[in-house]
Design a protein around this nucleic acid. Sequence first.
DNA 1: TTCCAGGAAGTCG
DNA 2: CGACTTCATGGA
Length: 295
Amino acid sequence: MQVNRENLWSDWRHYPGWKPDYPSFKETLDGGQAFCWFQVSENSYEGIVVNIPLRLKWESPHHILWSSPQNIAATADTFLKSYLGEEASYQKYYDNLPWRSDQHLNRCMKQFPKLRILNQPFEETLLGFLCSATKQIVQIKEMLKLLRQRFGQSVATDFARLPTWHELTQVSEQALRDCKFGFRAANIIKSAAVIEQSPDLFKNLSSLSYSETKKILCTLPGVGEKVADCVTLFGCGKLDAFPVDTWITKAMKHHYRLEDWKSPQIAHFGRKHFGNFAGLAQQFLFAWERNQSGK
DNA sequence: TTCCAGGAAGTCG
DNA sequence: CGACTTCATGGA
C-alpha cells in the first residue's frame, strides 16, 4: 500500500552543503556517474546507495531536500555528507580548473555551475562500470535494477541493494545474461572469482595514487583503461583521473582539435591540460557534449 | 534500416 | 606495434 510506503520515509530535510541549480542537480545524479538514481517526479529522484534508500529533491534555486527511511536517518545524514560533498571543497576544485584560459571549459562550467562528482562506494562503482561497455546509461540502470531485484538483499519495500562481490560468486553467467548483461556477464563472473580469491586486492586503495589504483583495477577481466579511470574517479576519489569514452573523444576532437588522437593520448592530454582535478573537468565536458546532442 | 552507446580483449599483418 | 573483430542489446 502506498500509505505504508510513505510511512517509511522521514520528513524532508535541508541539505546545506550543496546549493545547485536544477541542471547541475540532475546531471550530477543522473548524468552517468551513478546508475542508482531514478526520477520519480518533476524535481526529485529516488535511489539506494549500498543499503541506504534515499530521496533527493530540488526545491528552488539554492535549496535541496533529502529524506531516508526514518529508522536510519542519522546514518543517512552522515553518509550524504560524504556522498554529496561540501561546498568549500568544490570552490577550491572549480577555482583550480583552467577555465580562465580555456573558453570551451568555461562554457561547460557555466552550463552546469554546481556540477559535482559523487563520492560513490567503491565496490558498486566497479560493478556499475563493468556493465558499461557500449551501453547507454539508461540501459546500464535497467541491467543493475534487474540484478538488484533478482539477486540483491531486500532493504525496504521496493528497495534492494546490489549483490556484493561475494554474493556474485553464487550467481551464474546465464543468470546475468537473463538480466540483459550480454557479453559483460562473463567479465563480472570472472572478476567476482578473482576478488573472492584475493581478499586484500582492494586494501588501502584510498592511500594509493591514481596510477597505482588503476594498475590494480586493470588486472580484473573486463577492466581496461576507461573503466579503470571511471572507477578510480567515481569510486576512489582520484580526481586527477580522466576517463575517455566516445563522448569525450568527440568533445576533444571538436573543441581541442585532437583530430585522429587515440584514447590513451587523449587521456594523457586531458590530465596534463586540466591538472589535478582533470576528472571534474572531464565531467563538465561530458555533460555539455551529451546535452548538446540531445539539443 | 543504420548507427551508436561512459569498451575490452583477442587476432592478424 | 596498430588496425580490425567479436562480443549483446536496444535506443534514437
